[in-house]
């Protein structure tokens, strides 16, 4: 993992030094691959594309228009995410950037990518499960996979999570709520 991360970073910095930007259809793809490297400040194991926060990328001549949507209404990370998108695009040689926030359609955990879900489990956070649209006892423990678990609170360390404790391995864990 760290090796590939490094290579990626090297590549991107090389790209910005030479300022060679892809053209035409490739441009959209290039923007998306930059966006795929930006992580969520509160759940850093996920990227903003894993979360489904990026709703659209439009190329309008020189102008790159990125449309994003907040996960929760009061998500304090949104301003930072918008800034990080701008910084990452500038680093990669894009200069004219417009970031728009939309509220409709409202964000849902259905937009979370499969890869994102796997990363969350590996990180120790239980993933949204349609059986538990309302958080309740029984969400699978991401550590020992037991379903003998107890809901401690519907409100966790961030707006998107609920707090659980596994009754078998005794580990407390977060559940990424269905939303």
């Amino acid at each position: 993992m760290p090796d590939t991360e490094l290579t990626k970073k090297e590549n991107s910095s090389k790209q910005s030094e030479t300022q060679v930007l892809p053209s035409g259809e490739d441009l959209g793809g290039a923007v998306w691959s930059v966006l795929e490297t930006i992580t969520d400040p509160e759940v850093p194991v996920l990227t903003i594309t894993d979360l489904g926060i990026v709703r659209d990328v439009k190329i309008n001549g020189e102008l790159i228009e990125v449309t994003i949507t907040p996960t929760y209404t009061g998500c304090p990370a949104m301003d930072m995410i918008a800034m990080n998108i701008r910084m990452a695009l500038i680093e990669n040689g894009f200069t004219a950037i417009k970031i728009t926030t939309i509220l409709a359609p409202a964000w849902t955990t259905d937009w979370m990518s499969e890869a994102g879900k796997q990363k969350l489990i590996a990180y120790g956070i239980a993933v949204p499960n349609k059986k538990f649209t309302i958080a309740a006892d029984g969400v699978e423990c991401p550590q020992c996979k037991s379903t003998n678990t107890k809901l401690l609170s519907e409100f966790g360390s961030t707006a998107c999570k609920a707090l659980f404790q596994c009754q078998d391995c005794k580990e407390p864990f977060d559940y990424f709520k269905c939303h």
């Binding site: 929760y72 009061g74 401690l152 609170s153 519907e154 409100f155 966790g156 360390s157 707006a159 707090l163």
Partner: peptide, 20 residues
């Protein structure tokens, strides 16, 4: 602690609505 977190989570949601 859990209820302290719950009520402040609700505060945050309300603040988000208010900003919108």
């Amino acid at each position: 602690l859990e209820q302290d977190i719950a009520i402040t989570n609700i505060s945050l949601d309300l603040l988000g609505q208010s900003r919108n």
